[in-house]
Amino acid sequence: MSAARLYGGFRLFSSSAVQRNAVGGKSLVEAVAVTKNGRTIVAWHPDTPVPYENTLPLPEISEIQSSAVVKESALKTAMRAFKSKHPEVARQELMQLTHTTKHRWFPRARDRKAKQTPMDRPYL
């Protein structure tokens, strides 16, 4: 019974069905086969190399040099020297620099508590 159902389903993989695919008639599947026990259907579709004459170069992403004299890094970070960072922005930058989560950069209440340290003089 199950074998008959399988053979009935195999009709879906006839040659006319293989030709109809989404890539405008291009056949990406080179071959279709069924294993001996009939449990697996294999489709062979290797990567198609793109010929070099069909390619174009990537567009040039040239850096815009806003000054011929002053460094770009100095120009970009100039405003940072005059204005304080928002804590959230500082946290984001610290996360990126250190590859950590944000939680360790929040203030901790335990840092504001007095420590239990012994007195440094015997009469206190």
Binding site: V70, A74, L75, M79, A81, F82
Partner: peptide, 26 residues
């Protein structure tokens, strides 16, 4: 002395130099 005879500094460049001074002070 710079090896260019036509440097016309803009506002951005002047601000960058001022920022370097502030960084040195900090």
């Amino acid at each position: 002395v710079l090896q260019t005879q036509n440097w016309e500094p803009g506002k951005e460049e002047m601000r960058a130099l001022s920022a370097e001074m502030v960084k040195l002070a900090a």
